[in-house]
Simulated scan of single mutants.
Amino acid sequence: MSTTTGTTDVVRVTVGVPTFRRPDDLRALLPLLLEQAAELGVPGGRYAVDVLVVDNDPAGSAAATVAEFPVPQLRYAAEPRPGIAAVRNRALDEAAGSQLLAMIDDDELPLPGWLDNLVRTWEETRPAAVSGRVLAAFQEELDPWVAAGEFFRRRSLPTGTEVGTAAAGNLMLDVQQVRERGLRFETGLGLSGGEDTLFSRALVRTGGRIVWCDESAAVDQVPAQRMTRRWVLTRAWSHGNASMLTDLRLAGGPTARTALRVRGAGRGLLRLCGGALRWAWGTAGRSHRHQARGLRTSLRGAGMLCAVLGIVYLEYARPGERRLRLAGARLPAAPTAGAPGTTAVTA
Results as ranks from 00 to 15, higher is better:
M1F: 12
M1L: 14
T4R: 15
G6P: 00
G6R: 02
R12H: 15
V13A: 11
F20A: 12
R27W: 13
L30C: 02
P31M: 05
L32W: 08
E39C: 02
L40H: 02
L40P: 01
G41R: 03
G41M: 00
P43A: 13
R46S: 11
A48W: 03
V49S: 05
N56L: 14
D57M: 05
A59I: 13
S61A: 15
A62I: 04
A63Y: 05
A64Y: 04
F69G: 10
P72T: 09
Y76R: 04
I84M: 10
A85P: 06
N89I: 06
G97I: 04
G97K: 07
L100R: 02
L101H: 06
M103P: 09
D105K: 01
E108M: 10
L111W: 10
W114Y: 14
D116E: 15
D116V: 14
N117C: 12
L118V: 13
E123Q: 13
T125Q: 10
P127D: 08
S131Y: 07
G132I: 07
V134I: 15
Q139I: 05
E140N: 11
V146W: 00
A148Q: 00
A148T: 07
E150G: 07
R155Y: 12
T159I: 04
V163I: 14
T165E: 14
G169P: 07
N170P: 07
M172F: 03
R184C: 09
E186R: 07
E186I: 08
T187A: 03
L189D: 12
E195T: 02
D196Q: 01
V204Y: 03
R205E: 14
R209N: 10
V211M: 01
W212S: 09
S216R: 00
A217Q: 15
A217V: 15
D220N: 15
V222N: 03
P223F: 09
A224G: 10
A224L: 11
Q225N: 14
Q225T: 13
M227I: 15
V232T: 07
V232S: 04
L233S: 11
R235N: 14
S238C: 15
H239C: 10
G240T: 08
G240R: 04
A242T: 12
S243N: 09
S243T: 15
T255S: 09
A256H: 12
L260E: 10
L260A: 14
A265S: 10
A265M: 09
G268C: 05
R271E: 15
L277G: 05
A280Q: 12
T283H: 06
A284W: 12
L295S: 03
L299Q: 05
G301Y: 01
C306H: 09
C306R: 13
V308N: 05
L309V: 08
G310D: 09
V312I: 12
V312F: 06
E315S: 11
A317C: 03
R322I: 08
R325Y: 04
A327Y: 08
G328N: 11
A329K: 13
R330P: 02
R330I: 08
L331I: 03
P332M: 05
A333P: 00
A333L: 04
G338C: 00
T343M: 00
T346Y: 11
